[in-house]
Design a protein around this nucleic acid. Structure first.
Length: 725
DNA sequence: CTGGGCATCT
DNA sequence: AGATGCC
């Protein structure tokens, strides 16, 4: 989650008066480049911007998934060795965000830990929140998973014209540096209305999704964000323009300014600038020479609380990525395995998205004792269309199979696998996401919001004026005041589901149910393979000859015989023993909570297996029947030499016209270095012990794709990000 | 013993 | 492709 600090230090210094005037949007005429601060803002009416920040978001989601955690003294969300967040009970005992597990347990030994490396549930809930907000007004911009900006200017203006009596009106929630009750709403009618809207939206989020959070109400994003945390859990604060300098002055250092990150703060410090005032009084031209015009001006503006950046509707993500970090990864085999694992879940997510990625990127982080911090390297390449198409079309395992070699090719562009290497992170990413199909206008009421939504939010070189105009249009046509109850129809469907544990894969599972026909055919062959495999294992000397004829039809015997004997043996040998405990932390949590299935009560004896991601999510599922089916899916290791399974992620055997390594693009494959080819072969013959459980699903229905219905309608894939399936 | 995931800009 | 920033 977020930065470790966010509390505002109340530190009223007396610098303010001199900047009150300059806070007006009037831009210094001397600005060299195209200024971000454009005069048009002065002409447009005062904006009302909300910032929502959910309380300890991951912890809340886990508490919803497992209410037992609420009563439990503490809960922390653990990712690797870090507590990324924890509930407020834990915070009261001194825990902070991003604290190491060691420290955390030292402070409170009874700490209950929940693994949070799989973000699926958080992501889903996150989009429900955004969707809910959008149902009131489309101008919602996401910031991470737990924050949203919202431009409610239009909504406020409408209410303003329809609110007869502004005098019987007060602020809701806190007013920064004021006693709320003492502030006359009539002096700041827009802000007051904004505070009411914020309160209603927070209430809606709580009622429909069960989440609490804070809100800030101000005239720009910077201020709204800064003020939202003034009173912390589950409260809201309005910042009046007259107090704008107070809050910016309360920041203890430049680093606290959103937009001034670690590196920038360091460079500023090198210039002798540490406090807000330092930067305010620093000559612009000197700043320009260090950072360039635009950056310099932007920072200067931020520090006087000027922020004209528009609330830009976020829309569907422009990239999907999946990553895992670990202490050490040093073999090509492990890289291959991990890459395949990451790709499996990424392809699944991509498939749900519905769009087709045109670009693939592989990112790694190498270990280096000195530069232990982020130095990531990446390589990307286009995804051949015939591969990319398989993702939205639903041939997900095919897609994975063909993407793995692609990924390995990129890997070898960065890493010489002949020399020793030491990776600590692998990331796979789809980008350049293309909406397929002609399809469909918004038939649903919401979809119309999104019809323009996925359009690229180009770099906003244009002044925010045009953006403002654009948003006004959107607001005019779509902004609905909740008091007109329009939102009910829209938000209904989000309301229930979330409190009861919702199987993350139920939707997918339904799809699988109709999709494994091929695989079940294959399963028969699989049986034969097993026997072949066992035979080979018991007597590995006679491999080639004895076994060749038992190879599945999709493996060209001739090719097989050309392989070195050791490879043949490997291909028929039982699955690798997965010997890398390094990647996951076996839990050290000593949970004291009874009857909480997905809490780790004791370290699992085996290193938690490669599959994190959705699979882990499935295992974690609370739904008993789902769990039950999960248990039996462990197969004997020797199950199969070639990856085939009824309902697993991979089915290598598909159509009989496949030559050699099955669905893999021969061209791509042949380009690979020999050792990689060998690794691939080895990997492919390996049966993953963990199966994705499609939950209980009747495979009977070969429905056209019940997704086709849902999916045909989604030329704009944004929809699914907001639609609980 | 520093997550995992997204965006923007150059 | 990398750097930086946000959560």
């Amino acid at each position: 989650m977020g930065d470790s600090e966010e509390e505002l230090e109340e530190d009223d210094t007396e610098w303010r008066s001199s900047f009150l005037d300059s806070a007006a949007p009037a831009v210094p005429a001397a600005a060299p480049g195209p200024s971000l601060c454009k005069p048009s803002a002065a002409t447009s009416a005062q904006r009302v911007i909300l910032h929502f920040d959910l309380d300890c978001f991951y912890a809340q989601v886990e508490m919803i998934r497992n209410p037992a955690l609420r009563e439990v003294p503490l809960a922390g969300i653990q990712q690797k060795y870090i507590i990324v967040t924890c509930n407020y009970v834990a915070r009261d005992l001194g825990l902070t965000k991003l604290m190491s597990v060691i420290d955390a347990k030292e402070k409170c030994p009874q700490l209950v830990l929940v693994k949070g490396e799989d973000l699926t549930h958080y992501r889903e809930m996150s989009y429900k929140v955004t969707e809910l907000l959008m149902s009131y007004c489309p101008l919602v911009e996401r910031l991470g998973f737990d924050e949203n900006f919202m431009d409610v200017t239009e909504m406020v203006e409408r209410r303003l014209t329809q609110t007869p009596d502004l005098n019987n009106f007060s602020f809701t929630g806190h007013v920064y540096n004021h006693i709320s009750a003492n502030v006359k709403a009539s002096d700041h009618p827009r802000m007051a209305l904004g505070s009411h809207i914020a309160a209603e939206l927070r209430e809606a989020i709580h009622n429909k999704l069960g989440l609490t959070g804070c809100a800030g109400i101000a005239t720009n994003k910077l201020l709204a964000k800064l003020v939202s945390g003034a009173f912390k859990p589950n409260q809201q604060t309005t910042l009046l323009p007259e107090n704008l300098c107070d809050i910016i002055g309360s920041l203890s250092s430049l680093r606290k300014v959103p937009g001034i990150g670690h590196q920038t703060a360091k460079r500023l410090q090198a210039l002798g600038l540490v406090s807000i005032q330092d930067l305010q009084s620093f000559p612009l031209k000197d700043l320009v020479s260090e950072f360039g015009g635009p950056s310099a001006q932007r920072m200067k503006n931020l520090v006087i609380a000027v922020d004209d950046s528009p609330v830009t509707p976020t829309g569907a993500p422009q990239s999907l990525s999946d990553e895992d970090s670990f202490k050490k990864m040093a073999s090509t085999k492990d890289v291959l395995q991990k890459t395949q694992q990451l790709l499996s879940s990424l392809v699944e997510r991509m498939n749900k998205d519905g769009r087709q990625p045109l670009t693939f990127r592989l990112t790694i982080r190498r270990y280096s004792p000195t530069n232990k911090w982020f130095s990531r390297e990446s390589k990307q390449c286009p995804i051949p269309n015939h591969i990319g198409q398989k993702i939205p079309s639903g041939s997900r395992d095919d897609a994975v199979l063909q993407l793995v070699p692609l990924a390995m090719k990129l890997f070898h562009k960065m890493v010489d696998s002949n020399a020793p290497f030491h990776l600590t992170l692998i990331n796979v990413c789809f980008s350049n996401l293309q909406t397929r199909g002609a399809a469909v206008s918004g038939k649903g009421s919401i979809t119309s919001f999104f019809s323009h939504g996925t359009s690229p939010r180009k770099t906003q070189t244009s002044s925010s004026q045009s953006q403002q105009n654009g948003s006004s249009q959107a607001a005019d046509s779509h902004c609905m005041d909740h008091q007109f109850s329009m939102h009910n129809m829209v938000t209904q469907h989000t309301s229930q589901m979330t409190v009861t544990t919702e199987s993350p894969s139920s939707y997918e599972a339904a799809l699988h149910g109709s999709r494994w026909k091929q695989s079940s055919v294959v399963a028969v062959k699989d049986t034969r393979l097993q026997t072949a495999c066992r035979a080979a294992r018991s007597d590995s000397d006679e491999t080639s000859n004895t076994v060749t004829h038992r190879l599945p039809p999709n493996v060209d015997p001739e090719v097989f015989e050309l392989l070195p004997e050791e490879i043949q043996v490997e291909l028929l040998s039982p699955a690798y023993v997965n010997s890398s405990p390094s990647t996951s932390t076996s839990s050290s949590a000593q949970a004291t909570v009874p009857d909480v299935p997905h809490i780790q009560k004791a370290p699992s004896p085996e290193p938690s297996q490669p599959f994190t991601e959705n699979i882990e999510g499935a295992v974690n599922e609370l739904d008993p029947p789902c769990r039950a089916t999960t248990v039996n899916n462990q197969r004997p290791l020797a199950t199969s030499a070639f990856p085939v399974r009824e309902e697993g992620r991979l089915s290598f055997v598909e159509s009989s016209d496949c030559k050699f390594p099955v669905n893999v693009d021969p061209e791509v494959f042949s380009e690979l270095p020999p050792d990689v080819q060998r690794e691939l072969m080895s990997e492919w013959k390996q049966q993953k012990p963990v199966l994705k459980v499609p939950s209980s699903r009747k495979p009977g229905r070969k429905t056209k794709d019940r997704k086709a219905a849902g999916k045909g309608g989604q030329a704009n894939s944004l929809f699914k990000y907001f639609k609980p399936t």
